[in-house]
Design a protein around this nucleic acid. Sequence first.
DNA 1: CTGTTAGCGCATTCAA
DNA 2: TTGAATGCGCTAACAG
Lengths: 343, 343
Amino acid sequence: MTTVTLKDIAKLAGVHPSTVSKILSGKENIQISDGTRKKVQTIAQELDYRPNQLAQAFRLKKTFTIALIIPEISNSFFSGIAKSIEKESYQAGYNLVVCNTEENSEKEEKYINNFISRGIDGFIIVPSQKSTDHIKNLIKRKIPFVLVDRSFPSIQTNTVVSDNVISAYKCTKYLSELGHKRIAFIRGINELSTIRLRLEGYLKAVKEFNLDQDSELICGNGFTLESGRNSTKEVLSLEKPPTALIVSGNMLTIGAIKAIMEKKLTIPNDISIIGYVDDDWASCAITPLTVISHQLKYIGKKSFSLLLEQIKSGDIDIPVSRVEIESKLIIRDSTAQLDENLK
Amino acid sequence: MTTVTLKDIAKLAGVHPSTVSKILSGKENIQISDGTRKKVQTIAQELDYRPNQLAQAFRLKKTFTIALIIPEISNSFFSGIAKSIEKESYQAGYNLVVCNTEENSEKEEKYINNFISRGIDGFIIVPSQKSTDHIKNLIKRKIPFVLVDRSFPSIQTNTVVSDNVISAYKCTKYLSELGHKRIAFIRGINELSTIRLRLEGYLKAVKEFNLDQDSELICGNGFTLESGRNSTKEVLSLEKPPTALIVSGNMLTIGAIKAIMEKKLTIPNDISIIGYVDDDWASCAITPLTVISHQLKYIGKKSFSLLLEQIKSGDIDIPVSRVEIESKLIIRDSTAQLDENLK
DNA sequence: CTGTTAGCGCATTCAA
DNA sequence: TTGAATGCGCTAACAG
């Protein structure tokens, strides 16, 4: 392996390695004669010198790498955010490392610790929400990070989240305006802040518009396709089944559609459905889907800029930001006026 | 920041740092008295010592990190592979770094160079196929890597690919058996090995079964939704439009469906369609889609094991493997017997 | 069994 | 303007 080092250049240029270091560091305000500067630069170019970033990182405790910790890389919501953050960080000269936790808090912690000990400039985390210790640890150690999509009531820190209360309220209101009184909510993992807030919005609308308030209509715990299918089957099998469904996740929605198909029901004639779906497939679904859609690009952008701000601030304490990003209700064909016969 | 180092432990234990290093290195066959070993271990535990992996990597030139370079993280084909590789590597004690090249060969090269200089144990690459220099460079520098999904005829190296010729042949044959004579092929990025091979399989079947051989039926260049939509519109506007469509990509297929919807055609009555789609949405599409589906889990698994083999082999030259993985034709409702009226 | 020494490649003092 | 010296934290070879 022929890796060119500062020493190699120094030898050829007949100067000291530290001189080479100074010249190649790229800083403007260093005092070096034009002669040696030029000489060193040309030699460096000829040898195609690249600084050993590992050594640099070791020396400077600065890696120009940030880690993105997400629960599920193959979920279009997260991969969309990842895509956006990658773009932003690349432009800013940072490398992005993406880690998959599979909603496993332990794995999340392992990844985070691993990166701390291997050196990392900051984290963007969609936390798995079981434990908070490792997050608190980040604060204690003053490691820059921002939480995305999910937050902890007990931890005040930089976050970028969606307007979950509002979006769920909007869905429910819209369905209510279409005449629906019995609206089920397939919720996903219970403990998540995201889910709690959506539920809050849903319940608010339920009360406000005098809809059926029935705990059986709220169900599900998990984000898998299977979970969505089972929960949907469950509510559809109730004595008084719902006439509309709000489904709080991408995979969940696929599962819900499958369940509806298996029950030989049609959308939206027999049942209306709104999914929290960020996937282009939604518009090509069996019935083009009315969805809550997140502005993934913007979520990613904002997360990264918030992180960068922290990284650049050094030790100076900057005020904590909590950004809430609007999501959109996109109306397609899966929601319709309630058929009077179904009342 | 209070990072505990070997020195700290050494001081407390009253021994030399190198002794601590030996004990904590975890190797079995080192000669240390039980007394000091226990003492050092307990102190390390109390202080919650974690080796500085940056220093370790710097010293040992071993990072236990591998990089996955993919063109598009938000495409379910790639994110599915990423998910699988992540799982495998995590189990093997490796960290996985995922990079997004946006099909940009320059960005790919930048990422690769960056990781080389920052230290990396190996690469898994889905190459963007414009240039091959940086790939050849990896071989020259004996850096372990494996190519996935796409390969270069000019480069003999470890690869894991799909059975593209066969899969395209299978599709075409199946459609021919349904009576279709005019089958369009929406191809994606021309230059890719994947696409060339699929085209080969398609053409083979076209000849063998005496189907319409018309260059107008082969079209498209790009993998975006828009590209799929435009190409599909194009072929559907031909004087003699096709009665069936093979679409060589995930996003492309969404675009194709949109185009079909916009033309007010129905699937499969007016037109049959088979997509190369690895997304659970396919079964919930406007008409549940007949697809070619890849075994993403297995592709990821095989790629990683091939890479690990290389990494562990050290400098010993091991024979190059070229693995071809079977893909499956999953028949749903988007393909049907040709309506006689359309002939 | 344990300590000493050396050095990975770099950037940053301080001295000349 | 340049050189020399130092150390980041760790491991490995060699002494003792």
